[in-house]
Design a protein around this nucleic acid. Sequence first.
DNA 1: GGCCCCGTTCGGAAGTCGCGAACGCGACTC
DNA 2: GAGTCGCGTTCGCGACTTCCGAACGGGGCC
Lengths: 253, 253
Amino acid sequence: MTDGTPPMKSVIRAFEVLDVLWEVNGAGPSEVATRMDVPKSTAHVYLRTLEETGYVINEGGEYRLSHRFLTTGSRLKHRSSLFRASEANLRELARETGELVSLVVEEAGRSVILHVESGNRSLELGIYSGMVTPLHTNATGKAILAHLPADRTDEIIDTHGLERLTDETITDKETLHAELETVCECGYAVDWNQQVKGMGLIGAPIIVDEQLKGAAGVVCPTGRIKDETYQRELLQKLEGMIDSITIKYRYGT
Amino acid sequence: MTDGTPPMKSVIRAFEVLDVLWEVNGAGPSEVATRMDVPKSTAHVYLRTLEETGYVINEGGEYRLSHRFLTTGSRLKHRSSLFRASEANLRELARETGELVSLVVEEAGRSVILHVESGNRSLELGIYSGMVTPLHTNATGKAILAHLPADRTDEIIDTHGLERLTDETITDKETLHAELETVCECGYAVDWNQQVKGMGLIGAPIIVDEQLKGAAGVVCPTGRIKDETYQRELLQKLEGMIDSITIKYRYGT
DNA sequence: GGCCCCGTTCGGAAGTCGCGAACGCGACTC
DNA sequence: GAGTCGCGTTCGCGACTTCCGAACGGGGCC
């Protein structure tokens, strides 16, 4: 983690080119060169090289990101033990409840949505597989934070801070720690309007052999989830699902 | 397209490192070095650099691909006009028919599955968003080949050949061209057992303003799809869906 | 305690990358 | 239709980076 040897400039730049291509949704060498403030011959070599890797496509002089990212990303997801153990159960819960069900893992101190399954009345809030959010802004993230080793939790909070996404986001360390303790005791977490106004979530950790693997959650409109009876029903089903997942993960295929 | 200037060695190698990390599902510098036949100090610099980009994660000396691939891939998909115009309709068709519904685009002469929606009785054949297949082995691919400019179609066939995936795969140019002509006339394509034994597909192109955007298809067990009445029913629904998608794409959000 | 293997760091030498200038092409202007 | 502009692409030389072997420090296993 120390900065003993500097990273490779050309590789870093290659990924900057990818970023630029993403931002402008495809461009020629000239535009990339302008945006990166390099000669266009330089931009050209990078583009040609990236094309060779297959992650960039050249369509008549216009270079753009290829779907190889999608391919690699999906393969990673489908190889994940957690996903494999969960997929069927997530789908079943989504069918049963009609809500959006999500599977989340922690990576680099942030929450990555590994998979979502939508039910027939689930929200369309732009939640997608691969989406990255801060951990402290939603129930699944809090479930993870609560069950991570304490020092890791602190490190994450210190590194990433407590960004405010809505006016109900927890942005105070004390409040968060208090909440995490409750989450730890109850075994599940809840939030509403903390990430997106109008969206609520129940989340619980997936723990196999005392090791935190991720979390699963049910996403609802705040209105629905505020009903205590419904909330309890969802929680019970969620925990049932997580039990199945845990077993499948532990002994599974 | 010519090989005037050689590609950048370090960038190419960086992506080779990514490939290796994928293959071995995470490794340290030593293992990467062995596999790539370079000194481990070299492997180390690459790994450190890739870590900096966020596409690789270092977990206590073990480097592995991060979920950033999934994130980038999903963002690409969700930004695609075709996907945005299609998503709701695909889901609806999957619900209605209970079958697997897929959305496919051509990239670099191959078929990329942009999205799949599964119904309640759909096959579990390892079809996933991001999956890449040869175009000539399935109905959606053939629908695309049939509606691409003729020279492009020939170029693709010449470049990629006609790989055999099952004993019913079309591997003969003449046969394929004849079939493509029929597909062009009928406006839809069919296959069974050409890609995977037991799997059948009806596919039709998505064409907006005379421009081929991709194809959509319904995937069934061969048994079910061989029933002509059912096949006709699916086809009708598929074409209805594609009409909606076309309109949404043309005038949509 | 000693061994081995790993991830990591370092500094010099070889070689690649970076750059400016120039080419060929198409679109658009006059 | 000639001229101009802007684009993607190519080329070759100088300078900076990558590359490498050797060495360091730490962890696990005998």
